[in-house]
């Protein structure tokens, strides 16, 4: 029997699904949730903070629910992913996100985490202006092996190419340990173009890996 695959743009009532998507994507083939470890919050607190951040719906960064699309298989949520074109908002995605983190995690948690910032900065892979940014692509376990990551990314690229016909490049970031994700993205034409590694091995207590890869694809 063939499966019926449909896509829809996320709405406010999809926020819980997006929160789960961000957290699962964060784990990146590990059991570590960096936001919990860095800012010393429980999983439940983190979910609550993410919900509030997403409700703001500030476009052009990963905590914007309306930048997500959801793929359904036979009417059931199966995969979720976000995208935006860097530089189309007044400020960079990094600054928009930083302001949201400052606002919703609060200055006390931000300050406590400050000793880690220099090491975390070593992992920074800059988002190039004018490129399509693909983030938090997640396929639920029971729907894996069906090529859904490829389908949802293709859909996002089509949507954004229609809106921005001059788009030439899509970028995404993964942690180096996430070999299955790397393989899946390579299969659909992405290749690694940059790698950053932190010199601070202690970061392994906080993050799934201390190396991050930037992958790109011409679109």
């Amino acid at each position: 029997m063939s499966e019926t695959i449909t896509f829809h743009r996320a709405e406010a009532n999809d926020i819980d699904l997006i929160v789960d998507t961000i957290i699962e994507a964060e784990k990146s083939n590990s059991d570590k949730i960096s936001f919990c470890n860095i800012f010393l919050v429980s999983l439940e607190e983190l979910k609550s903070i993410f919900r509030e951040m997403l409700k703001e719906n500030i476009q052009g960064q990963e905590f914007c629910y309306s930048d997500y699309i959801i793929l359904k298989v036979n009417g059931t949520d199966a995969a979720c992913c976000s995208s935006w074109v860097e530089g189309t908002q007044q400020f960079s995605s990094a600054i928009l996100k930083a302001n949201l983190l400052f606002e919703y995690f609060g200055e006390e948690k931000m300050e406590k985490a400050q000793p880690l910032y220099d090491s975390l900065r070593e992992l920074n892979l800059e988002r190039e202006i004018g490129t399509l940014q693909i983030v938090n692509c997640y396929v639920k376990n029971t729907f894996r092996g069906m090529g859904l990551a490829s389908k949802i990314i293709s859909e996002l690229i089509n949507i954004q190419k229609t809106k921005y016909p001059l788009l030439e490049k899509a970028q995404l970031r993964i942690t180096k340990n996430n070999l299955s994700a790397k393989k899946a993205y390579e299969k659909i034409g992405f290749s690694v173009v940059a790698e950053k590694t932190s010199s601070n091995l202690n970061l392994l207590n906080y993050l799934p890996d201390i190396s991050r890869l930037l992958m790109e694809k011409r679109i």
């Binding site: 960079s92 930083a98 931000m110 910032y117 900065r121």
Partner: peptide
């Protein structure tokens, strides 16, 4: 001046800036 003019003005530095200014 804005983050687009100062290369080092990234998300983490932005947070440190706000904390320091406060």
């Amino acid at each position: 001046s804005s983050p687009s003019d100062i290369e080092a003005w990234d998300s983490l530095q932005h947070i440190v800036l706000l904390l320091t200014i406060e």
